Simulated scan of single mutants.
Amino acid sequence: MARELDLFVPGAVFLDVIFTGLRELPRPGTEVWAPGMGSCPGGVANLAVAASRLGLSTGLGTALSTDAYGEFCHQVLSRQEGIDLSASRRVDDWHSPVTVSLAYDRDRSMITHGHPLPTGADGLVNGLPAARAAAVSLGGHNTAWVRDAGRAGMKIFADVGWDESDEWSCEALEVLPDCHAFVPNAVEAMRYTRTDSPRAALDKLTGMVPIVVVTDGGTGALAVDSASGESVSVPSVPVDALDPTGAGDVFTAGFVAGTLGGWALADRVAFANLVAALSVQHFGGSLSAPGWGDIADWWSATRQAAAGHHADSAEGGLARRYAFLDEVIPPGRAAAVHRATATIARLSDARADH
């Protein structure tokens, strides 16, 4: 019998090619040189890699082409990141989806080429494995498997993508009663609820699903647990943001890890804020996700900074908010995983040493 996964993530994997250090975006008829460039698996791989680096046994349900791009993604995901691909399959004569991202002025512009994912009638590529939790992106894909997963006892964590039609139809949210948590960003939440503030959107979504978390970038995140009645507002972690690619997926991975670990709601949201903040300090999507080694390094530096300031200072407040990390960072810091460099030239250099 196959082992039960902690998290199952179905969806499309893209090859992400990221150009960094741009001084300006190219105008028609011009050429711009980029000082830096990286490549890594993207799409749902962002969430899967982030979860795996936090120690969750993670499975990916996707199609990977046998072309060079698909082979690269397969090698990174399976060999480097240790992700279970038994619910995925390789596909001949199918072009890997590709996204080119131009990182500029702490934001990014993207160009994508792709073809429909070859899924079954339930919206999965190779069936539904046993897992404690699963992630689903609502809208645009068949999500018939969600109800079966919920009945099997999985905790379903849902998010939504940008609605290019600008209709923001509530039909996309019809699956929420079968989910455990809904984690939209503030803009998505306000568009779907026709409200004008993240708090108003949170209030309107409360009750549609047991837990609602609305992320708001540099402001932080709001969350409500309808079962307990608990409501929290957790500020973001101040960092020098370079590239927000995949930050929402890293946030979700952190929230899933905290939920499966049985943490308090405020600690789950704070941890998700932290791992998302650490990811945006580096370029790239999936491979910018922090491992426990990166988290331990941040926590050590934060405590050291707090020791040199008054208890009521910003540094002191940050240290108090994240004191729970002493209980959750795995022992054996020297063996903790660190983030890897994004490059298609070779397997990225995730290292186990400090």
Rank of each mutant, 00 (worst) to 15 (best):
V9C: 15
A12W: 00
L22K: 09
L25K: 04
P26K: 02
C40M: 12
P41C: 08
A45K: 06
S57V: 09
T66K: 10
Y69T: 03
F72P: 00
H74C: 01
V76S: 00
S78A: 14
S78Y: 04
G82S: 09
L85Y: 07
L85Q: 03
L85C: 03
A87I: 06
S88W: 01
R90T: 05
V98Y: 10
L102N: 05
G123S: 12
L128H: 06
R132I: 02
R147E: 15
D148A: 15
M154N: 02
A158F: 07
W162H: 15
E167H: 10
A172S: 13
A172E: 06
A172W: 08
P177V: 04
C179T: 07
A181G: 07
A181M: 11
R191I: 05
A201L: 12
D203L: 15
V213W: 05
T215P: 10
T219E: 15
G229R: 12
V232F: 10
V237D: 00
P238G: 02
P244I: 01
G246W: 06
A247N: 01
V250D: 04
G258M: 07
A272S: 12
A276G: 11
L278T: 00
P290K: 04
D294E: 04
A305K: 08
A305D: 09
A307I: 02
L318W: 00
A319H: 02
R321D: 01
R321M: 13
A323D: 13
F324C: 11
V328F: 15
I329P: 03
P331H: 13
P331K: 13
V337W: 10
H338K: 07
